[in-house]
Each structure stands twice: as structure tokens, then as C-alpha cells.
């Protein structure tokens, strides 16, 4: 496979990593927009989902928003942003698009996690005299934790994927290596960029699985 060898050569050539269009700078951009967007999305979606789940309202919204998120093409949203004055505001078009697509999985999973807490357990906790706040912190949150983490994982993967599509409308991020390769008919560069993007997504997924494992036992010890 000549392409793989050529892509390896591209990846191990120092010049391809330095400078404004270099892989290092693109990776930095990618991580920056992804991190900011994921933090903003969590700040919006998690409190809302946990509150709605706790009071047991807004289920239709929380579940349907995922279906809407699935039907809207990321590329179209980014392209629409590029036709508004937003295009002159640096990383914001990307970040806003990423937040829009990270909120649905976070919201839906956290909400479903809260609602799937066994009603008998909730009743028992109430019967023991727990207040709403105690019930939330000591019963519902620990039991909903696996679903919240599932939502966080799929949101993070979604964000990394969406950030790469930003390159298709001329915004920054690792995807630019791929689109630049397409523009110059450089298959090796396209392949090298794709390896970087795929590796980043798999690393993020792996890191969150590991984080989940690390946090889980703590939760179990506390609730036992």
C-alpha cells in the first residue's frame, strides 16, 4: 500500500507540523474549539436535563431533540453560518455549531438516565425522609451516572467529528489538512489528515471510557 507509506512520510515530516497551516496548529485549533464547545454544551444541557429529569417534566422535548439533531446536516448548518456576519468572528461559528450538535446527546441521555431510576428506590428514599435535594444528590445522580457518561461520550465524539467538518466551509481545525490535500490532489496528505482526525476521535472516546472507569468505583463506594 503505497498510500499508507506516503501518508506516514507526510506525518513524520517536521515541516508539515510547523507554521500556521501546520498539523500542530490545526490540532491546537481543533482541541480548543472542541473543548470550549463541550464545556458550554455541558453547562447548558446537563443542569437542564437533570432538573427536568428530577421533576419529571419536559420528556418529549428531551427525547425529540436528539431526533432533530440527527436530521439536521452539520455541513448545512456550518455553511449557513458562513453566510451570516458570524463568519467574521473567528472560531465562534464553529463553536456555536458544535454546541448545537453536542447538546442533544447530552440532554437526552441525562434525562433518560434520571427517568430510568427505579421509582421504587425513589419512593424508598422519600420514605426515609430524604429531601428533594438529598434525593437528587444521593440517589438519582449516582444511578443516572452511567447514562450521563454515555451522553458525554457521544457528545464528545460528535464534537470532534463536527469540528473536522468545519474545514469544508473554510474554518480551522484538523479537517483543513484533509481539505487542503483534496485541493492539491495530494492523496497522501488527505490520508494523513484522515488518520490524525480518526486517531483524535478514538483517543477522546478511549480517554472518556477510562475516565468513566476511574470515576465509577468512587461512586459505588460512596453509595454503598
Amino acid at each position: 500500500m503505497g498510500v499508507i507509506g506516503d501518508a506516514w512520510t507526510w506525518l513524520t515530516t517536521g515541516a508539515n507540523w510547523s507554521g500556521d497551516g501546520g498539523a500542530a496548529h490545526r490540532l491546537g485549533e481543533h482541541l480548543y474549539v472542541s473543548g470550549v464547545a463541550l464545556a458550554v454544551a455541558c453547562a447548558i444541557a446537563l443542569p437542564l436535563a437533570l432538573y427536568l429529569g428530577h421533576v419529571g417534566r419536559g420528556g418529549a422535548l428531551a427525547v425529540n431533540i436528539s431526533n432533530v439533531g440527527r436530521a439536521v446536516p452539520v455541513f448545512a448548518v456550518l455553511a449557513l453560518f458562513m453566510l451570516t456576519p458570524l463568519r467574521n468572528s473567528g472560531y465562534w461559528p464553529t463553536i456555536i455549531a458544535l454546541v448545537l450538535f453536542a447538546v442533544p446527546p447530552l440532554l437526552t441521555n441525562a434525562y433518560v438516565g434520571m427517568r430510568e431510576v427505579d421509582r421504587a428506590v425513589v419512593e424508598a428514599a422519600r420514605g426515609m425522609g430524604m429531601s428533594g435535594g438529598q434525593l437528587f444528590v444521593r440517589v438519582e445522580l449516582p444511578l443516572a451516572y452511567p447514562m450521563i457518561m454515555t451522553g458525554l461520550r457521544s457528545a464528545a465524539v460528535q464534537v470532534v467529528a463536527t469540528a473536522s467538518i468545519a474545514a469544508m466551509v473554510g474554518l480551522g481545525g484538523l479537517g483543513r489538512i484533509i481539505t487542503a490535500g483534496f485541493n492539491t490532489y495530494d492523496t497522501a496528505q488527505v490520508f494523513a489528515g484522515a488518520i490524525l482526525v480518526a486517531a483524535l476521535a478514538l483517543l477522546v472516546e478511549g480517554a472518556l471510557v477510562a475516565l468513566d472507569r476511574v470515576l465509577s468505583p468512587l461512586r459505588r463506594r460512596r453509595t454503598v
Binding site: V3, A161, S164, I165, F191, A194, I195, A198, L202
Partner: peptide, 17 residues
């Protein structure tokens, strides 16, 4: 699951050769 994690832009690019 691994295939699903690969972003679409990368997936299409990896299939290019």
C-alpha cells in the same frame, strides 16, 4: 462502535485510495 467513532470527513478520506 469503532467505525462509528471515526468522523465522517476522515472516513471518506480514508476510503479515497
Amino acid at each position: 462502535t469503532v467505525l462509528y467513532t471515526v468522523p465522517s470527513l476522515a472516513m471518506f478520506s480514508l476510503l479515497l485510495p
